[in-house]
């Protein structure tokens, strides 16, 4: 791999830089020569039909799936994410909210946030950990996501929407440089969707965010640059209005 100085400006000034990423499963190309680049502080919405490779892209960024070919660089091109595993990538500052909300059902809500809270991740630190000032931070986050009243409840007893929020709360607790949010409003009521959009925009003030979503209304409400994925590569990029007017995007979405 070339030395960082020789890399183009796009790399050295982006938080996340994907180039020519290809992933295939048993001959099926989930990602096909995908390229994407995300500036510091940007919020990006990613849309695309099922099977377009959105989740696989997240898997590649977070280290769950290794790409067959391609570059995945983080933090001005200083870190090659394809060489790191999930835990290392999370510690580097990439947080992920899953499509299917995954919280720790057998832990209380505050423990869920506690586990996500930025801080020591090693066995030794956590064996002798004492709650110095964490409670305050947890309380803040729980207020932000509107779950302060439930802090002692087991996460498994939450409703679907509440779990989505808890996961977002856990993301905030991680305080990552980059947040990957997969379908944050799936299964939410309209009111919940609006709240979530506000929450995400809040977060985007001081974080870089990628949101994957099907819900066009929600994406419109976010009002950010949109990337359309189709069959594992980028089909179109631009504002939501530009993308909605794109003939190929309409073709892909409305049938061929």
């Amino acid at each position: 791999m070339a030395a960082p100085v020789e890399w183009p400006r796009a790399i050295t000034h982006s938080l996340l830089y994907l180039d020519g990423v290809t992933v295939s499963f048993d001959g099926f190309r989930a990602l096909n020569n995908l390229s994407l680049d995300l500036a510091h502080g940007e919020m990006r919405a990613i849309i695309g039909p099922n099977g377009a490779g959105k989740t696989t892209m997240m898997d590649v960024i977070t280290g769950k799936t290794r790409p067959d070919t391609g570059e995945v660089l983080f933090d001005n091109g200083s870190i090659d994410l394809t060489r790191e595993d999930e835990a290392a990538i999370a510690q580097l500052g990439i947080g992920r909210k899953f499509q299917r909300p995954t919280v720790f059902d057998d832990h209380t809500i505050e423990d869920n946030v506690l586990l996500a809270l930025k801080g020591g991740r090693t066995v030794g630190r956590n064996l002798f950990w004492r709650s110095n000032g964490d409670a305050g931070r947890i309380g803040d986050i729980l207020s932000t996501i509107g779950l302060a009243a439930h802090r002692r409840r087991l996460a498994g007893t939450l409703s679907h929407g509440q779990k989505q929020w808890l996961e977002i709360g856990m993301l905030i607790a991680q305080d990552p440089k980059l947040l990957l949010v997969d379908e944050p409003v799936a299964g939410m009521t309209d009111a919940e969707t609006m709240t979530t959009a506000r929450l995400l925009k809040d977060i985007a003030q001081d974080h870089t965010v990628i949101v994957v979503e099907h819900d066009m209304e929600f994406v419109r409400r976010l009002g950010v640059k949109v990337t359309v994925l189709h069959e594992g590569s980028v089909l179109a990029e631009g504002s939501i209005d530009e993308v909605s007017a794109n003939a190929r995007v309409i073709e892909v979405y409305l049938g061929r």
Partner: peptide, 8 residues
């Protein structure tokens, strides 16, 4: 081995 997103 079977490969794929859903396997894991």
């Amino acid at each position: 081995a079977l490969k794929g997103r859903a396997v894991e």
